[in-house]
């Protein structure tokens, strides 16, 4: 069996293999079937706002609060309330529809993107993967100043894309 390349503690972000090994990533078939939560939280840190923010009880941390979050995909409606609730800025929601993928991701930089913006989607190490287009920005008060951005891009990159490139202020 292949041991996945581990990059979290050397390059700062987990490799796809590390995330898969932790059971944190949805498969391509899941992503084609419905919008899927991606929780990229693979270390035991004392934290559970993902669990308490979920109105459906789909995310379980339990006790001790250093447990890794466990997602029940059948209960998750991809409402996205957990995205701004996560202090680690570590949750996204992705979906594949044909050639097009969509991602909802947390964003705490200026300038705030706006619907229609042409942007560059990046992977976990900040490398530009493909162009993207912002289709929505949620800045509800309950997000507590963490915007949730929705963007579209080519579906072949759905597993590697996690965010977009930060523009000049």
């Amino acid at each position: 069996m292949n041991v996945p390349e581990r990059t979290l503690k050397t390059k700062g972000a987990p490799s796809l293999g590390e995330l898969e090994a932790a059971g944190m990533l949805p498969g391509l078939e899941d992503l084609k079937a419905r919008a899927c939560l991606c929780i990229e939280c693979v270390e035991e840190i004392p934290c559970n706002p993902c669990e308490t923010s979920c109105p459906r009880g789909a995310i379980r941390v339990g006790s001790p609060i250093t447990n890794l979050p466990a997602l029940d995909r059948d209960k998750c409606t991809a409402c996205g309330l957990c995205i701004p609730a996560c202090p680690g800025i570590a949750i996204t929601i992705k979906r594949v529809e044909g050639e097009k993928a969509t991602i909802r991701f947390p964003w705490e930089y200026l300038p705030r993107p706006e619907a229609g913006d042409e942007v560059r989607m990046v992977d976990r190490l900040g490398r530009v993967v493909c162009p993207g287009r912002v289709t929505g920005v949620n800045e509800a008060a309950r997000n507590d100043r963490t915007a949730v951005v929705t963007a579209e891009f080519a579906s072949e990159h759905v597993l590697s894309v996690v965010s977009m490139q930060r523009g000049p202020r």
């Binding site: 964003w107 705490e108 930089y109 200026l110 705030r112 100043r145 915007a147």
Partner: peptide, 8 residues
């Protein structure tokens, strides 16, 4: 002058 978290 402006900040995503701290505001203006």
């Amino acid at each position: 002058a402006d900040h995503a978290v701290l505001g203006a």
